[in-house]
Amino acid sequence: MTADRPVIRVDGVSRWFGNVVAVSDVTFDVMPGITGILGPNGAGKTTLLRMMTGLAEVSSGRITMFGEPVRRNPELYRRVGVMSEHEAIYPYLTGREFVLAMARLRGVPDPNDATDRAIELVDLVKASSLRMGTYSRGMRQRMRLAATLVHDPEVLVLDEPLNGADPRQRYHFQALLRQLAARGRTILISSHILEEVEELASTVMLVINGKLAASGEFRAIRAALDHRPYHVRVVADDPRRLAAAIVQLESIDAVEMEGDGGLVVLSTHVRELQIELPRVAARVGTRLRRVEPLDDSLESVFGYLVEG
């Protein structure tokens, strides 16, 4: 496999369930490094990943990994590690037993040694002798990651792997993925949280309503996001006086009064607004009760990108 050849190729793939189209004519390539699949819940990310790992059939199109078909090709799983979104564990097994079983199933030459290494990698040595049924969600995720990594796969497909992880685990996990990517591994990670993917992936695929809304370098997409107008709702003791004061700010594009003592501010410079708003409020002698973004959900971000 040369560096310029895609590891995974998704070519005009669609999947429908009856009349519902879950994935619609999606085409992209995945190269070595970390690629993020980003999209709101229900966008079709999991269906796409399941088709890419051979767990689900495509309705039309073709998916290949290392130039081979992914479906009905068990030998491929010697080179691929998949961590699904669901916490599919055997609660009666200890963490070590689980990872060891996965090592044996994938034909690892020295499964005991590989198991110890994988558990060490996710920093769960102490808990490895406990049954997985007693684990917290974060611990389960980490032990499942150990099971995914135990055969040292060339390709890692991780569906919402940071669910349930605390900040420390999240940091450890991200460091581990960067380390693997630096060693030439191909990592595909899905998430519905923009920041999660931003911290990890240089390349992103934005999926919305089963379609590929945007793809490419994260920085270019982020730059587009930075020029997007945001709606911010501000509740203050004296909204009229505050509105009169902030409307003169350069960071504000428009201000609209709400009936219940609130203001809706439209701004393309949210960072400046964050700094200036408390200063102005203090200057005019009104207290800020609440400041909340109205359209910070991923759906609105996607909506903006798609419209743009």
Binding site: L55, P74, L76, V82, A88, L105, A147
Partner: peptide
């Protein structure tokens, strides 16, 4: 959903 653990093997 543990079946995936078994089928995602060679």
């Amino acid at each position: 959903r543990t079946l995936a653990n078994l089928v995602l093997t060679p």
